[in-house]
Design a protein around this nucleic acid. Structure first.
Lengths: 151, 151
DNA sequence: TATTGTTATACTCTATAACTATA
DNA sequence: TATAGTTATAGAGTATAACAATA
């Protein structure tokens, strides 16, 4: 039998223990804190702004429609988000020559430089949780998570 | 070599591919949708309200201080949340006889009945993602996630 | 008529500061 | 003086409806 618990502040999780959404929310507390400390605060970037710019970096150009779907944002909120990024000279919106209704959103050279900085800063995030996870466990976790939302 | 990609709407993730926070956010889109459909909408419960009530169910009584820490809420926001739950007769706030500053928050009988309903409704959530995960993978995922935020 | 993107606006969530009471 | 909880309030995030331009 284990030793008597010493005035522990631990509380029971009950049925939450087997619920994926709860564990995702708890783990997100850690990753959000790591993001804000390593990237968000130093570069004055919100998480969703960082993700959006990373997607542009990886895809050259995307339409607001594609971005809204990938990031689960409504169209009006994405418009405001793009406005702010454009004011900071990180993106440009070009008209799609093949379909005047849609746009190509691209990183500017300044935006590309920012993302190189951000990618470097992001390397520090993993230290916030990798003391608890081996590299193999970390890789497994990423793979299992992507299965949750695949399709 | 794979066949030519057919007008796919897939976009590249770039460096996001290796970032835990991004995958957590994407997976949360699925679990949040499942929660709202199975529990949130039918029972008119927000996710944080559900988690709070589940913690009370598993622990008999907790102080607002403990709840705020467990759910990463600020004290004023928790006060408003408890006010709303109290208005619906799901919780009561009792004065701690050993320390007049703190409280014991408990489920009412009505709240306990609600949580039995909620626990039943919550069983439907897993079908939203378990088509992609075997039971063993699901168990592994929960264990790896809890390692991220342990300590 | 359907689609892309924008504007206007309201609602919710979250955070900070100042306050009360108990210790 | 420190802690638990509350009140008041402002900011940020998110959603819906109505609109403009293009197909």
């Amino acid at each position: 039998m284990p030793a008597a618990k010493k005035h522990s502040s631990k509380i029971a999780l009950g049925a939450l223990h087997s619920q994926l959404g709860f564990h995702l929310a708890q783990a997100s507390i850690i990753t959000n804190h790591a993001f804000n400390q390593c990237v968000g605060e130093p570069l004055q970037l919100r998480k969703v702004e960082y993700s959006l710019l990373m997607l542009l970096q990886a895809n050259q150009a995307l339409s607001p429609k594609q971005l809204a779907k990938s990031l689960a944002l409504t169209a009006p909120n994405l418009t405001m988000l793009l406005d702010r990024l454009q004011e900071r000279d990180w993106i440009v919106r070009e008209r799609n020559p093949n379909d005047g209704r849609s746009q190509h959103v691209r990183l500017t050279p300044v935006g590309e430089a920012l993302m190189r900085e951000a990618a470097d800063a992001a390397k520090g995030m993993a230290s916030h949780w990798q003391k608890n996870l081996t590299p193999a466990e970390n890789a497994m976790l990423l793979e299992l998570l992507s299965k949750v939302y695949q399709d």
